[in-house]
Structure formats: structure tokens, C-alpha cells
Design a binder for these strands. Structure first.
Lengths: 250, 250
DNA sequence: GGAGTACTCGATCATTGGTCTAGAACAGGA
DNA sequence: TCCTGTTCTAGACCAATGATCGAGTACTCC
């Protein structure tokens, strides 16, 4: 709390309490990395809506305006921090087989997103950081080496990413980000109106036991089954059996 | 406390769990519906960050404070509007077969999200509106009737929703929400650093032709294949072949 | 020592979500 | 007609926020 830096006005404390005479230039210089790291701590600790430039600056022992020298906007901070957590996703060993590698990557990816629940809400922005790109590159190259190509490649990469992101978003929404009051009220609401939503009231989210993990694993396996079949060269059921009742997209 | 409007300090925080403004006699000038409708027009027209209470009130011809009689917070407005667009998703005919019905629902769902690209960013909040619940109920009941049960049911319902939401989020991010400058810069960036990201530079998003539609359809078919197999009673490849290299979740 | 650069900061601005409180429109009862 | 209570509207106002500007301070290289 009491960050008695020489820059802090109120301290006015003893000169002896200040380590160096370099008033205004104490400690390591401010860098993008330090900013992102502190933002990460702030986000993890207090949530996304408690991150303000002033509070962040305060934790860094600087003025809020100083941040704008290193960073153009607040969105920059979010982008930097978002990419930073992607760095926590350890890239799997390639030679354990493509399917195991992808499964491992997906699991770690999801774990990291859930470890930082605020991240799920921010995923709707272009992510071009090195860590994000490296993980995407690994995913693409692994799939290509597995023999996935053509339209299946796009579908596979997108499908996996989208599935992971969607799962994390949904789980973070209901498990972490929503405050308990709303969760409880939601349960109540579903129970009292079970006439309108019988299946939902019995099996829906927040009602049935939240076995997020196995649900995720199972769905991922389904996707991988399809990708594996597509990689095998045979088109299999897939596109053929589905039919297209209407055109998608805008 | 004595002069309490309908929006004042309900037990639960969510709009849907609070009684609506009593329409009293006939139609009061301002209603939740009118507010949501105007917010929808504003969001569609100018995007999510141009929606402010003042601007919304101005378009409605009232003062901004008036809105707070009908609505507790700005988030209420977003919740109402979000549920409103879910009403655009026509619920498919049940007797066309479960797979066709689910495919149709998924396609329409995605279409609506993409038609209102601002919605994708807002999906990370509890959605308890009647329209959302009705669509979820249809999804659950259709799957149940198709013979999906147990852990497969949760995985299927979550998997489909997550896949749809993730797909819409990703596509909206890259196709609509990102301004063209960033898209162009992203392409450039990937091209110049193709040494680091060879596969991505060749097949990644924004680089390859953006065939979002067929990618979505193909991935959806994979998921449905897995669900269909699970519904058939046979466990098939699925869980068995995957293995679990590490535990997921936090 | 001097000059230019890298960095910091207080003051300040416009905008935002939200509250307080006064009051208008309206109904019903006497 | 007056009174009373409820429903709804609105102007003034508040604290917080993202961001800018110009001035100032430290550091580096010559």
C-alpha cells in the first residue's frame, strides 16, 4: 500500500529513507515488460474493471502520465498483458504425435485462459503478439505435418481455436466472472420457470454439476476425430451427411 | 428506499430477475422495449463504444437520467439488447431430424451474431433473457430426444454453443471489428516475419482467403459426427483414443 | 561543460456512468 | 375542486476515467 517513493508527494519523509538521490528516477526504468507484468498482477488480483491507468501507475510508483510514454493507449496495455499470459502456454513436444500434441496444447491453452479469467472477455480483439503467433504457428504446422490440408486445415485450426476460446469464455463467465448472487439467482430463476425450460432446468449450466473439464475433453476429442478422418484423406461422413438447409453468414 | 422505482436495488443484479417497469395503463412513453430497440439501432449503426447513456437518451428524445428509471445500469441495456437479437434466431422445425435441426439452429445463431458484430464482444456475460433461454432449451431438448445423455449431453450442448460463439467472436474480430488499417498491418507483419511463422504466414487468418462459412460448416459437422456417435450408444474413438496428458482446469 | 535525447510529472480537459432532488402528469377519493 | 399518493421526467451535479500538453529532470554522448 504505502509506496513511499521519492515521487510520492505525501511522503515528504526523511531523505534517509530514500535510497538514492536520483529523485524521480528510482528503481528499474519503466519498460513495457514491467508495465505488462504489473498490469497482469492487477488484473489477476482485482479484475478487469479495476484496471485503470492511474491505479496501474500508482502500483508502479509513477505518475499515470508516465505510462503514456511507453504505451499509446490503455488498449496497448491490455494487448501486452494478453500476449504475456499466452507466453505461459508451454509449447508441447512435437514428437509425441500430432494428436497428443494438439490435445496438450489445447489443454494448456484453456488452463491459462481460465487461470486469468479476465482474459476471456478480451479475446475479441486482434491478437498479434509474438506469444500468440508462436502458439498459432505451432498449431498450424502440427496440423499440416499431420496431413491436414486444403479447406480442412482452415476448418481444423479455426475449429480448435474457436472451441477453446468459446469454452474458456463460457466457463469463465459462469464460474468466475459472475458474482455468486447472480449465479444463485440464475439457478433460482431456472427452477421457478422450469415449465418453460424443462431440459435446461435439469441439465443446463449452473444446474447440473459443473463438470467443465470432461465436457471440454470430450468435445475436443470429437473435433480431433473429425480432423483425423479428414487428414486420412477420406472425406468421410462430414460434409456429405450434413446438408446445408440454409446459407450461413451475412 | 421509500421512493423506490422498479429498478431500485432488487435482490438480484440481473435485469431478467427483476420485475419490469409496470406498464400501468397503456403504453408509457418510455419502455424497456423502446430503449432496447433504440440501443440496438445505435449499436448496429455506430458500434459498441459509441453507445453511451446520453447518446441513447438523446435518440429517444429524453434526458439521460430518465433512462435510469427503467433500467438500473448501462449493463442492463446491453443485456436487454443482447437478448433482443437472440429473438431473431428463428427456432427450427423439430421434425426435420435432430441433426438437421441443430445444424440449422447453429447456422442461424451464427448468422445473427455476425449480423450484429458488436454482440460477439459482449458474450462474456451471463445471458438469462427469455430469448436466449428458449434457444438453449431447444438445443438441449433436441439433443436429448436424439438420444444424447449423460456426460455426452453436457459436452454436446457446451461444445456446440462454445464452437458457435467462438467462431462468431473470431470472425467478427477479424472481419468487422478490426479497422482495415490493423488488418492490413497484420498482413504486412505476417509477411515480413514469415521466417518465424511460416505456416501461419501461408494459411493463417487474414492471409488465406477468408472462407469462414465453409470452415464453420466443416467443423460443425465434425462435432455433430462425434455427437451422433455418442448418441448411438457406442462410445467409438472419442474418449478412448485421446488420453489425458495433463489435467485441465485451474 | 554543453547539447540533445530519454523519460517523468502536475495540471488539466472532455466524457462517462450514475445519483440527488425537485417537480410534472395523472389517477382516485372526498 | 382540493388533496394525496404513485408514476415518470429531468436539470444540476459528482467522482472517476482516458488522454493531452507543456514544463521540467535525469542520462548519454560528444
Amino acid at each position: 500500500m504505502s509506496k513511499a517513493g521519492p515521487t510520492t508527494k505525501g511522503a515528504a519523509g526523511d531523505v534517509w529513507l530514500r535510497p538514492a538521490t536520483r529523485a524521480g528516477r528510482e528503481g528499474p526504468p519503466l519498460t513495457r515488460e514491467r508495465i505488462a507484468a504489473e498490469a497482469l498482477a492487477l488484473l489477476d488480483g482485482e479484475g478487469v474493471d479495476r484496471l485503470t491507468m492511474r491505479r496501474l501507475a500508482e502500483r508502479l510508483g509513477t505518475g499515470s502520465t508516465t505510462l503514456y510514454w511507453h504505451v499509446k493507449t490503455k488498449e496497448d496495455v491490455l494487448d501486452l498483458t494478453l500476449d504475456m499470459i499466452f507466453g505461459e502456454i508451454e509449447i508441447p513436444d512435437e514428437d509425441e504425435g500430432w494428436r497428443a500434441a494438439v490435445t496438450t496444447l489445447a489443454g494448456r491453452w484453456r488452463s491459462v485462459l481460465l487461470k486469468h479469467p479476465w482474459s476471456a472477455v478480451l479475446l475479441g480483439r486482434p491478437m498479434l503478439g509474438p506469444n500468440v503467433l508462436a502458439r498459432s504457428e505451432f498449431l498450424y504446422s502440427t496440423l499440416i505435418k499431420a496431413g491436414v490440408g486444403g479447406p480442412s486445415l482452415t476448418a481444423a485450426a479455426y475449429g480448435l481455436s474457436n472451441y477453446i476460446i468459446g469454452s474458456a469464455l463460457m466457463q469463465a463467465t459462469w464460474q468466475t466472472n459472475a458474482d455468486p448472487d447472480i449465479r444463485q439467482a440464475a439457478r433460482e430463476h431456472l427452477r421457478t420457470s422450469r415449465d418453460s425450460y424443462p431440459s435446461l432446468a435439469e441439465h443446463g449450466p449452473m444446474v447440473a454439476g459443473d463438470d467443465w473439464d470432461s465436457g471440454f475433453t470430450l468435445g475436443l476429442a470429437w473435433l480431433l476425430d473429425g480432423i483425423e478422418a479428414a487428414a486420412g484423406g477420406e472425406v468421410r461422413g462430414g460434409t456429405g451427411t450434413v446438408g446445408e438447409p440454409e446459407t450461413f453468414g451475412p
